[in-house]
């Protein structure tokens, strides 16, 4: 699914865009978690890029994405985010979006559209 379609579907907001071409990127897989060690454990052997979906609105979700070579992070539940997050996303070159939908709603909608 294209990032531009994901953004529209989830009514997501841009927090930081590291690469303008990101909207044309196609994600077939997503991984949703609030536990960063789970992401590290389960995505360590993943060779393709995965959309990281998290309710963890602090800089560690970005650090985890950076460690795993993931380009895009989607924050759910519309919680206030750390003031340093946009700055950190820029430093780590990660595209960061936020939606007000819950993680359950986000996963359901993306799954319905074919993402796994």
């Amino acid at each position: 699914m294209l990032v531009k379609d994901i953004k529209d579907l989830l009514k997501a907001r841009e927090i930081y865009i590291a690469d303008e071409n990101i909207y044309e990127k196609n994600y077939e897989h997503g991984f949703a978690t609030d536990l960063m060690s789970d992401a590290l454990a389960l995505l360590k052997d993943e060779t393709e890029d995965v959309l990281l979906i998290s309710g963890l609105s602090n800089v560690q979700s970005l650090r985890t994405a950076e460690v795993l070579d993931l380009e895009t992070v989607l924050l759910v539940r519309g919680k206030p985010i750390d003031t340093h997050m946009a700055e950190m996303a820029k430093d780590l070159h990660i595209n960061l979006f936020q939606t007000d939908l819950t993680m359950f709603q986000v996963c359901g909608l993306l799954y319905e559209k074919g993402m796994r």
Partner: peptide, 8 residues
């Protein structure tokens, strides 16, 4: 803060 999954 997202840690403590016991997988470190």
């Amino acid at each position: 803060l997202g840690f403590g999954a016991g997988m470190g």
